[in-house]
Amino acid sequence: MTPVLEIDGLVKHFGAGRGQAVHAVDGASLSIAPGEVLGLVGESGSGKSTVGRCILRLTDPTAGTIRLDDTDITHLSRRALRPLRRDVHIVFQDPYSSLNPRFSVGRIVGEPLRRHRVASGRELADRVAAMLERVGLAASLSRRYPHELSGGQRQRVGLARSLILEPKLVVADEPVSALDVSVQASVLNLMTDLQRDMGFSCLFITHDLSVVKYLADRIAVMYLGQIVETGPAAEIFASPQHPYTQALLSAAPVPDPVEQRERSRVVLGGDIPSPLDPPAGCRFHTRCPVAVERCRTEEPALVSRRDGGGPVACHLVTGADVPDLTAI
């Protein structure tokens, strides 16, 4: 089956003056199959949101290709992009700033229909009402304004707006991070229901590992602009291969004091390197507890493991025996 989204060697550099550039994304490749939820995780500043913004062409990539349903959209003009915008939508983290405060809920949710001239008048109003109902909001809320809603309600409005055109792909950038657990639970349930019903694919960006563990079919782990490991979620959680993935999973606490206090952790030394001047060789080598000489000079490619598991960018994993850091 053709992937809904395929990114190959994506690069995004932001000019930072004096000839310098922020290497926000530096050669990231990933693909999402129809109906699949891909969780994109990694530390703050690793380039997750930038990947999402490139996919939506909210920012123009420096190099690499982005294909949506086999159409190369990397260099399409705004005009040529327009019809494709119906197929891809984004849900943002911040339910406050992503909704126009001067528009009513009904206007916000109906906006994509209006912009793409899909519906108007009575039909538009009906579709908005149906969509609001689908995300669990009373139709009467459509006359309210964002500031009159709770965080969870606002996030539902954001979802309704993203889904009203029945897109093939939804990019969700930290959609539940600002929400309390009890509200988060209802938004995650809702996303699951809608995704199963409507069958859209989803790039789910988050730093919360318990959320990706719950939601994602597959996971891609980013470090300093690159994807260092991808694979089925169950496999990555059961046996993370890249030392960074191992550190990340071992550092995320679990909500059980007995279990949590018995876990061992891979401690990372050193500072997070600057994206202005990423380290040569493997980007993780400055913090990696098991780096060897080769890691300092030679950049590892994201290649499949010999045992057939998901691809990993680590000389030690792909070239020799898998190090088990938790045993050190």
Binding site: V181, S182, A185, L188, V211
Partner: peptide
């Protein structure tokens, strides 16, 4: 609160997506 956490249901298996308990 404890039951609403995704971790409350993922112990059994990853990717099953059983419903989370809402308040």
């Amino acid at each position: 609160l404890m039951k609403a956490l995704p971790a409350a249901v993922t112990a059994a298996g990853v990717g099953e997506r059983p419903r989370l308990a809402e308040i």
